[in-house]
Amino acid sequence: MTRLGEKVGYAAMIVGAAVLIYVSRSYALQDGAYPHIVLALLAILAAVALYNSFKASQQDLQREEAATEPKAESGAMWHVVIYIGLTLLFILSWNWIGTLPAAFLFSGVLVVLNGERRIWMIIALPVLLTVVLYVVFQSFLYLPLPRGFFLR
């Protein structure tokens, strides 16, 4: 992670802690004191870390980057964003098309996006996964997985 990302992270912690303290300002002492102390400490430590992050010299930066994992290829960040977006879509779709159909589609898309090109694999994995989920969770353990609005 670049120094910029780190700075944004600490800033977000400070802002988050401040907002949370603000929304809970009317809590009684017995309910508010403990979370307020925790949040205040968090904000202070994040502020110190933010300050240090600004102060850190270019030299430190280079040394640290060398020590961490090899730098990801450009474009990989997009893959992360797409993965997170698809996962969110997957979760939201549970209540629309049902968990199992959603899992079938989602796993199929992920397999393809990750570079699988053999057609039988692209079909086999989602089918197997969905069948296992159905047999184990829905028909054996009666897990009430969301069924989606048109299968209700």
Binding site: F90, A103, F106, L110, V111, G115, L129
Partner: peptide, 14 residues
């Protein structure tokens, strides 16, 4: 990864 990713994501969320 291309198999691990879909399987683990779906199973973890279920």
């Amino acid at each position: 990864t291309r198999f691990l990713l879909p399987i683990v994501t779906v199973v973890a969320l279920v």
